[in-house]
Design a protein around this nucleic acid. Structure first.
Lengths: 238, 238
DNA sequence: CTGGATCCTCAACGATACTG
DNA sequence: CAGTATCGTTGAGGATCCAG
């Protein structure tokens, strides 16, 4: 049995063979946000070795999850796009992301938020799209170097990478944004402690948080703050 | 960045760190069927190196997805069980299994069906549980060495490993059972060609297939029978 | 400058043997 | 039964180099 195969006629085993390799899930996450060039992917996946990225892309293309297209314009660039079959992975990736986020309390040392991770996190959190505001609202959300443009209209939430052209409210936050999406951190405290900075019509912050839902697991191992981070519990000594 | 970590504060990345290691998904699949001993796991995962199994189990225990319990009875055995947090992975594994099965046409050379894979496949396929029969029906499904007991009652389907004690119908099949669950292969043909053997009240076969749904992807790469199997397309030259 | 390929090192995986 | 120990092989990580 060659590595990568499992020798079982089983859907899960086949899925693991296709996307179980290192970096594969994150590459697909980035490509599900939209088509990306090789260098975009490399930049959005800090730490990935260039040869690993190349091999993963070749395998994903081989498996029919990704297409490689050489933009024959004046800028000879190579663009990777998910195929329809690859796009069918979205529900599975969403479920995995939801599970991972449910156990994700604080950021570890040196952990960053990339544009693709921010966009897909917001998309997953808006998945239920229960209570999007009916008004036409646009936000820019920034966490570190990453930004996402959130727009609501007719109760539908749309999230794109980058900044909104004319945002009604600009939200700048650290990773504590995750607590907000969970509903653990109330708005006033967040703003008061500086965990979140608002620029614009601050009354529009409530409809923002109301549109997203990314709860914590109710079955977290050991003590609640167990993300191997030796900071204070929740006294917010930040 | 230590291997296994991705350096991103992202739910999907955290999930990949926890269950992205080789064999981890299949170990969890087996444990989600029920608690298992070390040797059960080893037997249900042909080809797994014993040290890999040991390491994976230690990691899963460390991450709080699995508990290790030493049965202090007369049979000193070690039993592994999924924790509640580990059980929360079920929706994600189901989504992955569904995706993988959607692209899974024919079995590759030497690919087998294990008890755990059969049980979880049936459980996923019954997930929608749209049209389970109202009668109390019990089946034994056998594929190769693997068997599952399927029981219906009040429109609820239950699937357990092993054979049913008194099955109304015993279904023995090759991997072509997969086509049946997809609805691609109609019952009469299946029985006529010997792809499926029935023992018992054959009229109960229809309610069986009706209770499961595991469709093929509508977006399969290239030609439909592309599972690197050089057989005929669908003339059923079997 | 983009899009990789190459080379080297080392950690992880795989196969088998062996032990409490 | 439930692993650990050992060793060979493979793949990942990191840096550099190269072709268009």
């Amino acid at each position: 049995m060659r590595t990568r195969e499992y020798g079982q006629f089983c859907g899960l085993a086949r899925a693991a063979e296709a996307v179980g390799q290192r970096w594969a899930l994150l590459i697909l996450r980035d490509l599900l946000v939209g088509p990306r060039r090789y260098s975009d992917l490399a930049a959005g996946l800090p730490g990935i070795p260039t040869n690993s990225l190349a091999t993963r892309l070749k395998e994903l293309e081989q498996d029919g999850l990704v297409t490689r297209e050489i933009r024959s314009g004046h800028d000879r660039s190579v663009v990777y796009t998910v195929t329809p079959r690859g796009a069918e992975l979205a529900p599975a990736l969403d479920a995995l992301a939801r599970w991972g986020a449910a156990g994700m309390r604080t950021a570890r040392e040196n952990e960053i938020v990339t544009t693709a991770s921010l966009v897909s996190a917001l998309r997953v959190a808006a998945g239920d799209a229960r209570s999007a505001d009916q008004r036409r609202l646009t936000y820019t959300v920034t966490v570190g170097d990453a930004s996402a443009a959130v727009s609501m209209r007719d109760g539908v939430v749309q999230i794109e990478p980058g900044q909104a052209s004319a945002a009604d409210l600009v939200i700048t936050a650290g990773p504590r944004l995750r607590d907000l999406l969970a509903g653990t951190l109330d708005t006033d405290t967040a703003v008061a402690t500086g965990a979140v900075t608002l620029d614009g019509d601050t009354s529009l912050f409530a409809p923002f948080t109301a549109a997203f839902d990314m709860p914590y697991s109710t079955a977290l191992p050991d003590h609640p703050d167990a993300d191997r981070h030796p900071t204070g519990t929740r006294t917010d000594a930040n």
